[in-house]
Computed example of a mutant assay.
Amino acid sequence: MPVLAVVALAAAAAPASATPRLGASVDFATFNASLNRAAEGELLADLATPDDPQARKVAEVIQRNRPDVLLVNEFDYVPDGAAADAFRGNYLEVGQNGARPIDYPYAYTAPVNTGVPTGFDRDRDGTVGGGNDAHGFGQFEGQYGMLVLSKYPIDTESVRTFQHFRWQDMPGAVLPDDPETPEPADWYSPEALEVLRLSSKSHWDVPVRVGKRTVHFLTAHPTPPSFDGPEDRNGTRNHDEIRFWADYVTPGKGGYIYDDQGSRGGLRQGERFVIAGDYNADPDDGDSVDSAARQLLDAPTVRDTAPASLGAAVAAHQQGGANAGHRGRPWLDTADFNDEAPGNLRVDYVLPSRGLIPLFSGVFWPVPGSPLARLNDASDHHLVHVTVVVP
């Protein structure tokens, strides 16, 4: 029986004085839209007119799903929200291929770590500079940024960002190890660890006001656990970027955390939240450090509604390759990667807290060959959403 029906029956059977107030039904979503460009300024130029083919497809995906609160990953950061405004005005608020326009009166974006120099040779290629040596991989500052869009008010004064939190300040951090030396966790020098930030983009706690309640929209985009060597510098970082939110929402574990304003501690016990983003880690397959995604999925305050789609299952069967050997259930996949390796994976998540009542969830992956399958190449990721009741 659907959750809402169960709650409604309980309300009907309860005395009037004990009847619960169901509250608002809100759809939270994440979409790695691949709206990143190769050079600074290109995204804003593309969005300045309503004619960019990829942006139109991305907008149509959003219009056909119509989430209330949405995280867009890989949306290049442009100061003053100029790119966000252009995307809303020229694409989302214009109907695409028969889909209805959609209005998001509230938006949040902020600087990220991609392209920000560290001053150290992080990849040990003998030179300092370039994307691999930045705090987060990027050819310019802000590439692969993030954007939050909302139909509900965002409490911008209470947003917490964790862009500058240092990796070494996480207790028990899984730091990469140089396999050529006997010392542990020594890929980075002590001097490099003094400056190296944990988040490859940023971690944001964005409070969204739903009636009289606040839901903390916890957003991030950890680095892919690949494009490195036996030291696994990206895999270990991906693991700890994911662990950050697991500690943040688990009572008693987030005391070490500090935000960019200097405030300390994790989320207060009892607060409602939704964790969202492309976490580049599948709980069963792929290259991530063992159990990286499980840190979130098994956190005691988190619900996993397991969003699924028939399209993902059909795609895995048709594409074969690495998909044939996967342990995970293919209908849970959210990203269409190279068929030979790593295959399609579940890497995009929308995870509500246990204080919220889940109603529906899904992955927008139209079945190959169906009319809307033309939208499957808008990005190599698919929109994931969960509808919850905010009591």
Rank of each mutant, 00 (worst) to 15 (best):
T219I: 05
S199L: 14
P117Q: 13
S25V: 07
G145L: 14
Q318L: 10
A38P: 07
R166C: 12
S200V: 11
T161I: 00
A246D: 11
D169L: 13
E191C: 04
D205K: 12
I257E: 09
V390P: 01
R374N: 14
A59C: 08
H382M: 09
F244V: 14
V174L: 07
L198C: 15
T49I: 13
A55W: 05
R329V: 01
D240I: 00
V69G: 02
R354I: 03
S202C: 04
A292C: 07
D298G: 11
D103W: 14
E157S: 04
A292R: 02
A12V: 01
N323K: 06
Y152V: 00
V347S: 02
A39P: 15
L44G: 11
V302I: 05
R124L: 05
A16V: 11
Y188K: 04
P53Y: 13
G211S: 14
A24L: 10
A29L: 05
R100T: 01
D304M: 08
L297D: 09
D177R: 04
R166N: 12
A24V: 11
T250V: 00
S353H: 04
E42V: 12
L383D: 07
D85T: 08
G95T: 10
T236S: 03
L4D: 01
V159P: 01
E60F: 07
F337C: 14
P117E: 03
P179Q: 12
Q163H: 15
A24Y: 10
K57G: 08
P368K: 04
R100Y: 05
V26I: 10
D155G: 02
Q139L: 11
S288P: 00
D247A: 06
P105H: 00
Q168A: 06
G145R: 09
G172P: 00
E141W: 11
G270R: 04
L383W: 14
V249N: 09
V94F: 15
S202F: 01
T214W: 02
P184Y: 12
D290Y: 15
T156S: 09
I62W: 03
Y144A: 12
N376P: 15
H382A: 12
S34N: 01
Y349C: 15
Q143L: 10
S200Q: 11
S17E: 08
G211M: 08
V289P: 08
R264T: 11
T156I: 11
G270H: 09
P105T: 10
L351S: 06
P67M: 06
A134F: 03
E191F: 01
W331T: 09
G81K: 00
R197A: 15
A373D: 14
T214G: 11
P15H: 14
S353L: 13
R233H: 02
F137T: 05
P224I: 12
Q163S: 09
D339I: 06
Y108N: 13
G129M: 06
A59Y: 01
A335S: 07
G129A: 12
N113W: 01
A306P: 12
E231W: 08
